[in-house]
């Protein structure tokens, strides 16, 4: 694998039209390597569309996307980028282990990988039950585990903690942190603003654009807010005021 020092993800002038709606008019961003980046914003702000564009699932109308120095969504990236869709997407009639074995064979991961990721997401106890019999939180973790086989260098996780209990959320964020320490780059979306405290950097989206790009302390300083929720509201109000003035 070639050594690459540039940003893990770089998006320039992204434009996405879905149906007749201009979902992302003109978006640019960069994510440094090894960062744990939170993609925050209300639902409908374009987070999933941006993530789908980065992994190459979304038809885009314009712009350049580069992942690990290669054009986004191209064949050499498909075993280096892990992607979790917003709804858990696994084979419901198979067990977690069978799902992982199948996806591990697709990325040519070692035979031990399914067991490794089962331990990582804490599902070793129910690995052999059909996925249909698992709880919502367990199902979310199976879907997440699938993205972890083959140790991808970039992980794009679309709302992986939504609907989970606080303990599970804390554990998952600890795991994301660990993966980032091991050198992976993670982009994790959420519409819960308080997850901002767990990220190195924040990208806050609204109406298909980036409202803010920086660290949490920068965000709080800039908006003079006391927490991420207030900061977002302050940013949104400021953006509205700018639009009204223009």
């Amino acid at each position: 694998m070639e050594k690459f020092d540039g940003p893990a993800i770089s998006v320039a002038g992204l434009r996405v039209i879905r149906g007749k709606n201009l979902v992302i008019p003109d978006l640019s961003l960069e994510v440094p390597r090894g960062a744990l980046v939170g993609l925050l914003g209300p639902s409908g702000s374009g987070k999933s569309t941006l993530m789908r564009s980065i992994v190459g699932s979304q038809i885009i109308a314009g712009g350049d996307i580069t992942v690990l120095g290669l054009p986004g969504g191209t064949a050499p990236l498909r075993h280096r980028v892990g992607y979790v869709t917003q709804a858990p997407s696994v084979y419901m009639d198979l067990s977690a282990r069978e799902n992982l074995r199948y996806f591990a064979s697709l990325v040519n991961a070692p035979k031990t990988d399914p067991q490794r990721v089962l331990d990582t997401v804490g599902l070793a106890d129910c690995a052999d039950r059909p996925v249909t019999t698992l709880s919502g939180g367990q199902l979310t973790r199976v879907s997440l585990a699938v993205a972890l086989v083959g140790k991808p260098e970039v992980l794009i996780l679309d709302e992986p903690t939504v609907g989970l209990d606080p303990i599970l959320r804390r554990n998952l964020w600890a795991m994301f942190r660990r993966l980032a320490k091991e050198g992976a780059t993670l982009m994790v979306s959420s519409h819960v603003m308080d997850e901002a405290t767990r990220c190195d950097r924040l990208l806050i989206m609204r109406g298909g654009g980036i409202l803010f790009d920086g660290t949490l302390s920068e965000l709080l300083k800039q908006t003079k807010a006391k927490d991420a929720d207030d900061a977002f509201l302050a940013l949104a109000d400021a953006a509205d005021a700018r639009e009204a003035a223009a």
Partner: peptide, 13 residues
């Protein structure tokens, strides 16, 4: 519909 096709299409298969 289950999203696994999107997942497959983002994989090397």
């Amino acid at each position: 519909q289950g999203g696994t096709m999107e997942r497959l299409m983002a994989s090397p298969i």
